[in-house]
Amino acid sequence: MTDPEREHLLMRAAFEQLKSEDARELPPFSDVLERRAPPARLTFGSPLLRIAAAGVVLAASVATYRAVVAREGRLEVPSDVVSLGAWRPVTDGLLPQTTLISATPGLGASMLDSLTTGALP
């Protein structure tokens, strides 16, 4: 018998032993058919899950802190100041005669003439 043949036989014998060992532990067909898989449970055994959970908690904490700080530091402005429609320039008080700039003065005329005569040149 050559070495490869002997090797083949020895290997077959090894697998036969494995086969008979499996046969001894063979579960009944009906047991396998009626077998119910146990429910999977969510645990924190996974390092990846732990890191993800820590990240979510950290992100939520940072977002809450930033929201609180931003609310406290915000400048409270009255609503009438904020309204653009109600806004008037401060220098409006210096120009009581708004008509002064409503018409262009004529050549050689003085703006003061219009104040004395009441009419633009």
């Binding site: 898989a37 146990p38 429910p39 999977a40 449970r41 969510l42 645990t43 924190f44 055994g45 996974s46 990846l48 899950l49």
Partner: peptide, 8 residues
């Protein structure tokens, strides 16, 4: 296993 779900 990655999600941390283990069977009883």
């Amino acid at each position: 296993a990655v999600l941390g779900m283990r069977e009883v």
